[in-house]
Amino acid sequence: MNKLANEILEPILFEAFHNQEGDTHNTELLTIHPRITAILYRRAYRDVTINSLKQLELFSQNVPTELLSKVRSLNINLSPTAGSVWGAVGDALVKCRNVEHLKIRAMGLWEEDRRGLVEGLAAIDPISFEWTSPDPPHHISLSLVTPCLTILLHQLPKWSRLEQLSLSHVQFPQCSQPDRFLPVILSPTLKSIRLGQAIKAPANMLAGIASACPRLETFDTEDIYSESIWGSRVDEKDVRNELEEAYYYGAFTISSRLQRIVGGDRGVVY
Rank of each mutant, 00 (worst) to 15 (best):
H138S: 07
A201N: 10
D179I: 00
L40P: 10
W131F: 07
R194L: 06
L153Y: 11
V71Q: 00
G108W: 10
T132F: 01
D23Y: 14
T150D: 14
L165G: 14
Q177M: 12
Q20I: 03
S211P: 05
W110K: 08
S73K: 06
G108M: 11
Y45G: 09
Y270G: 14
Y225P: 09
L78I: 10
G196Y: 00
L109H: 11
I50M: 03
R42C: 10
T218Y: 04
A123C: 08
G120D: 12
A246K: 01
A5N: 09
L142E: 08
L162S: 15
N26K: 03
L40E: 09
A38F: 12
L153R: 02
R215F: 08
A122Q: 12
Y248A: 05
H169P: 01
E15N: 01
L144W: 02
D238P: 01
T81W: 07
Q20V: 04
A38Q: 14
H101G: 06
T221V: 00
G263A: 12
L29S: 04
V48R: 01
Y247H: 08
S133E: 02
G250T: 08
W159Q: 06
T37F: 13
F172W: 12
T150R: 10
D113Y: 03
Q155M: 02
Q197Y: 06
D235N: 12
